[in-house]
Design a protein around this nucleic acid. Structure first.
Lengths: 220, 220
DNA sequence: CGCTTTATTGAGGGCGGTCAAAGAGCGTGG
DNA sequence: CCACGCTCTTTGACCGCCCTCAATAAAGCG
């Protein structure tokens, strides 16, 4: 169930998606509607029309695609401040779901065009970033080994975080479906990284990286 | 070596990239410079600045990315009429190389903005298509089996062709690097598809599909 | 034709998947 | 606060798909 969330912008801590367009993002924040989604709730569906765009205010989101027999591929993860739902011209190829309880800013795509500010540049920058990440993801899925995949994944999280301890907003299954592996393999690779002192898990979903150089080397 | 190619538009047979914008493409054709590239010649390099965009007039192109140890992932293939080089805001993540001897129309990205016509829409449509294909590719690489990968690949070629006999513009190595497999596995899967009468190779790079339904089923 | 490159086929091995069970985390209720 | 039950994660044993290595065959090209 979705519930309207009518606080004023409670997201002062939200990081900017693209540098130099903060004021433009402020315009967005005043335009859209905030909606709360529960963990695992669908934000939009596979093959649904793509006439809306979204921004994560609080929580985290995954995009995913299911095959008829249940195999799943995760496209990407989005965290507070990230824009998503830009990925296509007409219909979504991937569904979007709440990774945790979260609050999402929802806007009409058409509103983007009529609004002032640097929205065109923002749209372009967001889509470019999306393509960049997709291409990096292609290399990871097509040519990296299991240990390289997991190392790359952790490294990506470390880079996107400023804190000493990084926390995983997703479970092992989501990691596996992002990396094209099984949960067992992900778990084994994590244990291995921990055994070699390259990462150190303080909880199931929190880790530190005492040896970033080694992690980077493993990511290839 | 690149050689300037100064014929008048010799590409009357070139198919439109996006429907409804043919007249816009005509504008492009009058704006750019035609350059001939030899087989395997680099059109742009990995990490090179992305200030140009390209259109295949004749021949075919691949985008690819190399890991330091030689592993390679192919991003996509482009054929006569296709636009490419749109995939990023500033730097290319993948290199582009001529799959065969080919003629490429090259334009300044900045020229796109100043020109008339529906160029903005064309750019958007092209980028969207790029993202769509990348996302389909993610699913293929992450979650499909070798036989499903090969079947999907052939099916994609069949759909992009109107002729009865489809020809592969690339060799087995390029197919393998697109699919995240080895040439041996690709070859085995092709032999298997042929043994089960789902495809029929008339030459190493030409095939027919007497049983499209079965091929579609195999692609999952 | 002969040479080089590319594709096919076979035999064997290893990485990651499958199946199964034990362990850890966590919310609920006694 | 602890007991209980559920879900998620870890670990182990084994298997199979795809990779590796090697040899042969075919195709391209002078």
């Amino acid at each position: 169930m979705s519930l309207a969330y009518d606080f004023q912008d409670a997201a002062a801590h939200v990081r900017p998606a693209i540098s130099g367009v903060d004021e433009t993002l402020d315009i967005l924040n005043r335009m859209g509607v905030r909606i709360a989604y529960a963990k695992d709730e669908e934000i939009y569906g596979q093959d649904e029309m793509a006439d809306l765009v979204y921004r994560v205010i609080e929580g985290a989101v995954r995009t995913s695609r299911l095959m008829s027999d249940g195999r799943r591929q995760i496209g990407d993860f989005y965290r507070a401040g990230d824009l998503f739902g830009f990925e296509t011209g007409s219909h979504h190829r991937f569904a979007a779901e709440a990774l945790q309880d979260c609050i999402i800013l929802v806007l009409k795509r058409s509103a983007l065009k009529s609004a002032g500010g640097d929205l065109e540049r923002l749209t372009w920058a967001t889509t470019s970033r999306e393509l960049d990440r997709a291409q990096e993801h292609l290399l990871l899925l097509g040519r990296k080994t299991a240990s390289e995949k997991v190392a790359s994944f952790l490294l990506d999280l470390v880079r996107g975080s400023d804190a000493d301890t990084v926390d995983l907003p997703m479970g092992r299954q989501d990691m596996a479906d992002y990396l094209g592996l099984t949960i067992e393999t992900v778990s084994r690779m994590l244990s291995q990284l921990q055994a070699t002192r390259i990462v150190c898990f303080t909880a199931t979903r929190k880790f530190q990286t005492p040896n970033i150089a080694a992690l980077t080397r493993m990511a290839a």
